[in-house]
């Protein structure tokens, strides 16, 4: 799949242009634009390609369904027969109850508001963490002075888990809302910062030298070379940061929230609405997955060159 996408990038029109008079001086390119032929092949039978893809993906799809199906089946029987074997299923809602409650909640504005509030907190905290983490990471990675001044502080603060900040955050910030956003920010800030620094440090020095020979200013070097060269690492940081942001958010909401999906889940426990606990968990998982997916899509959009065949395991 990957190889195919990279070859598609050959522009047949441009290839034709170059076959013309420009060859007077230049020898033939060693590599012919092979994508031209493959692009033509691919255009004729999109249907067959879909069929082929289905056939190759089917076994994996079946196994996925089997895997999930077994889990739900176990859950069903464990709750049906009130399994009590050290691990207790006596109070656990059955899949059916969860489904019924989910149908009911799907009509509830309050529930959607909880989702909205959580997403807003994630978006705010994570965005601030991204801007600060990447900017500071670039500075710390690139400039010895910035590193000497800032890095010791961050290394000292880093081992303190974001959740441990909850009481302090409540005192620090004027509203509950800002302190929760702050906790979310803290959770994602450090992975983003550290991965950005790592990215800057692993920029191939020859690229910096090449840019300097091409007359780059100090700012141009940071903006046009160091930043794009670090993007793969930055996106690794964003993916990890997003995960930690959700962990921190849910914990903060459970402890001090008034709204939000974490608060909803904890409240369900207090109100003995056990089916809602499972729904809260599932929604948290799905939202987390969507957020990670959004980051991956954004990464692919910003780093089209990474789709090439030589780069395999991009996260």
């Amino acid at each position: 799949m990957r190889t195919a996408t990279s070859l598609n990038r050959v522009d047949p029109q441009a290839a034709e242009v170059a076959q013309g008079p420009s060859l007077a001086l230049a020898p033939k390119p060693e590599v012919t634009p092979s994508g031209v032929s493959s692009a033509a092949q691919q255009a004729e039978t999109p249907l067959r390609r879909v069929a082929a893809w289905l056939r190759s993906a089917l076994p994996k799809l079946l196994m996925t369904m089997l895997s999930l199906g077994l889990f739900v089946a176990f859950w069903y029987f464990a709750t049906k027969y009130k399994l009590d074997f050290y691990i207790r299923f006596t109070n656990i809602p059955s899949p059916g109850e969860v489904w019924d409650n989910a149908a009911r909640l799907a009509q509830s504005d309050k529930f959607y508001n909880n989702m909205y509030v959580s997403l807003r907190r994630i978006l705010l905290g994570f965005s601030i963490a991204t801007v600060l983490g990447v900017a500071l990471g670039l500075l710390i990675g690139q400039y010895r002075g910035a590193r000497a001044l800032l890095f010791p502080l961050f290394e000292t603060l880093r081992p303190v888990p974001a959740i441990a900040w909850v009481p302090m955050a409540i005192m620090l910030w004027p509203t509950n809302e800002t302190s929760i956003v702050f906790i979310t920010f803290l959770g994602s800030f450090f992975p983003i910062l550290l991965n950005t620094i790592h990215g800057v440090n692993s920029v191939d020095p020859v690229l910096l030298r090449a840019a300097r020979c091409l007359g780059t200013s100090e700012y141009g070097l940071l903006r046009q070379v160091v930043l794009p060269a670090s993007l793969p690492h930055i996106f690794t940081g964003l993916a990890i940061g997003m995960g930690v942001a959700w962990v921190s958010l849910i914990a903060a909401e459970m402890i001090s929230g008034q709204f939000g999906i974490g608060y909803f889940t904890w409240e369900a426990y207090s109100l003995i609405e056990y089916a809602d606990i499972a729904i809260g968990m599932i929604v948290i998982g799905v939202l987390g997955l969507l957020c990670s997916g959004a980051i991956r899509i954004l990464g692919n959009m910003l780093m089209p060159w990474m789709a090439g065949p030589t780069h395999g395991g991009q996260k």
Partner: peptide, 18 residues
């Protein structure tokens, strides 16, 4: 790029070149 016979590859990424 035309002089160097590389015009056909102007939109390629470096990793796609020999």
């Amino acid at each position: 790029l035309g002089l160097a016979g590389l015009l056909a590859f102007e939109n390629h990424y470096p990793d796609q070149l020999s």
